[in-house]
Design a protein around this nucleic acid. Structure first.
Lengths: 198, 198
DNA sequence: GGTGTTACTATACGATAGTTCAGCAAGGAA
DNA sequence: TTCCTTGCTGAACTATCGTATAGTAACACC
């Protein structure tokens, strides 16, 4: 009954990288940045410790990859067209969708932002991606305001709106029951109404 | 020229604890939660490693003490009366004051919230303190609305307002230049006007 | 001025961190 | 089948983690 340590099948680099990124996300969701260690991630992924360095060069490399992929998924979600909804309404729905407004996703997001404030490599990656995110929101706001004939400073409104949405994430990361999807949706609409009309 | 390792003078437990808490804050501001280690904090405070355990029992104990003190300072700041300002105006000024709207303070805050989402000991402490913070904001909002004869759901408005303010902190932690004191003040006022009047 | 309390130092300890690297083996190419 | 590339393993390595604890010395008290 000797347990034969069945070796992992060989995967393409892209597949293995995605698998390791998923494992890293699970570890961060479970234990924050202190849960992001070589041992934990390798165990979660079911691979040997050396494989992380092999694919990402270092743990920092993996962290950057996780951050970049999450951000890209985020932007894809808020830019996805939703039939029957205006662009601004679609934006709000995306932000409270199960894909984004998920407890684990937001915990990871909070953890990574904490690292961005400290880790120069991650901050550089952040700078590149944040502009895209912000631009998408500015565009949606400008379009909605124009449709309702309201002149607004879309940049300024977007900055405040992003803060509001970030705050949802912080609250929900810590105490999910106090910030439900319905709460967030209502708060978004109440915030936006004076600026871009009903 | 033998360097005599001059021993530290004895301090009262209260003084020494405060000194260690300050050192911990400096370390967290510099390196996030990964900067919060026995060696770094002891070196920053200029004391031996053992002293942390002696005064706080464990590193977790020190972290909770840091969190609790920051929260209490925070609440004291927003509850401090400011002559010539209404209570709600004083609240906004407190939130953008150098005492609270400081880059390092907000970096520490962001880091600690990330830990609260993960660390049960810290979360318990958070639960006790967050209620006080929220209540102070609800009271200020209700007072302002009543003064202007506007019926509002102060709880709901406070929840959204807290999110907005949290978002300022997140943004400023990561990119201080994109969220100045003036930006935050203006965003607060724009947010509050529809609810509690000019 | 002796005595007791305790703030404080310093070292030891086992656990765990991230990285390196020699070697194994899977699977496509010839 | 044989060879070769390379995905992958696993142990070794040094550094650093948090905690425990024995020993030292400063200060209050009688």
């Amino acid at each position: 009954m000797a347990e034969v340590p069945r070796r992992n099948a060989r995967l393409s680099p892209a597949d293995r990288r995605a698998l390791l990124e998923d494992a890293a996300r699970a570890c961060i969701a479970r234990g924050g940045i202190r849960g992001f260690t070589v041992d934990k991630v390798a165990a979660e992924a079911g691979v040997s410790r050396g494989l992380i360095t092999h694919h990402f060069g270092s743990m920092d490399g993996l962290l950057v990859a996780v951050y970049a992929r999450m951000y890209r998924e985020w932007i894809a979600a808020i830019e996805a067209p939703r039939p029957g909804l205006t662009r601004i309404a679609a934006l709000v729905e995306a932000l409270v969708s199960p894909e984004i407004f998920d407890h684990d996703v937001l915990k990871i997001w909070l953890t990574l932002w904490g690292e961005v404030a400290t880790n120069p490599v991650l901050r550089e990656e952040h700078r590149k991606l944040y502009g895209t995110y912000r631009a998408a929101i500015v565009a949606a706001l400008a379009e909605a305001a124009a449709a309702n004939g309201r002149p607004i400073d879309a940049e300024t409104v977007a900055a405040a709106f992003i803060c509001l949405v970030d705050g949802f994430g912080v609250q929900r990361s810590v105490e999910p029951a106090l910030m439900t999807e319905a709460d967030a949706r209502a708060a978004c609409r109440t915030f936006l109404r004076p600026h871009v009309g009903a």
